[in-house]
Design a protein around this nucleic acid. Structure first.
Lengths: 141, 141
DNA sequence: ATTATTACTATCGTTTCGATAGTAATAATT
DNA sequence: AATTATTACTATCGAAACGATAGTAATAAT
């Protein structure tokens, strides 16, 4: 995996964009953190139809920056299980803010899904998402 | 300006990414909302060295989705003044979350600038950023 | 009148994307 | 046990986007 400094600057925003600032990474994180998707196959099956070559490349990159881990379970040697790390779970606020902004600002340009619970307190939504994911994680070591 | 539905799905996250999910848009917004940059020249002069062709294309796109407006002042017919709209100012929470995440999670991969005030309450930081920008806006109609 | 600045556009080689097909390993089915 | 299906990829290759540089037209400054 090429890890040759591809950071454009020392700005934290720019650096974050250098890792997840593409059209797919945050959608992969969305599926993992909200829908609890864990395998290549599950992540492939989204409305947005990500190409396998892109998904493969993105998972490798996210793994290299320690946002996700990859493992196999003893009972299944075929499937890889991808799980979010703490760093990855820490992206929940960003995911939630994207949801809120799209929900409030793009309805004139696109039919946006209605999502339940968005009127609740922001930090509560974030807590719930993160806690649910962390609870799910317990079943894995 | 081509406005042919380039939305991949009706998911608010995906739709937001379809507009600002590239390596440059949020950096342009950052410079506008935090550093109060207003002209093509000012925005060009960032650490990340955006190419003029890209900046030009991005400004047009952001304008087409009503995140920014473009105008000239009577006293200067050369400069274009770019200002954030309400929709654009609404991106402040996303910008702040990117800052916080990068600040907390990327120090092992890149030298990240130390930023003052990040230990304050999130919603307060966002309020300050948005209020400062809105105050600055008053001098324009 | 000349020079500088601003906001671009044009060009063009490089990189990335993205659709599709193919493959190797494992698991399920008959 | 043999065949079929599934999973997680890799390979290919044309299309789109990026990015560095140069150029230009309008305005402003000297």
């Amino acid at each position: 995996m090429k890890m040759n400094n591809k950071f454009r600057s020392s700005c934290p925003i720019a650096s974050t964009l250098d890792i997840v600032g593409d059209k797919w990474s945050l959608l992969i994180i969305r599926d993992m953190i909200i829908k609890h998707k864990r395998t290549f196959k599950e992540i492939s099956d989204s409305d947005e139809k990500i190409a396998p070559s892109i998904l493969s490349a993105r998972l490798k990159l996210l793994e290299s920056y320690k946002l996700i881990t990859k493992r196999k379970l003893p009972e299944n040697k075929k499937e890889n299980i991808y799980l979010l790390t703490k760093k990855g779970i820490g992206l929940a606020p960003i995911i939630i803010e994207f949801t809120l902004w799209g929900n409030n600002n793009l309805r004139e340009f696109n039919d946006i899904d209605l999502i339940d619970g968005l009127e609740s307190d922001k930090s509560m939504i974030i807590d719930i998402v993160q806690n649910n994911y962390s609870s799910m994680l317990i079943q894995f070591g």
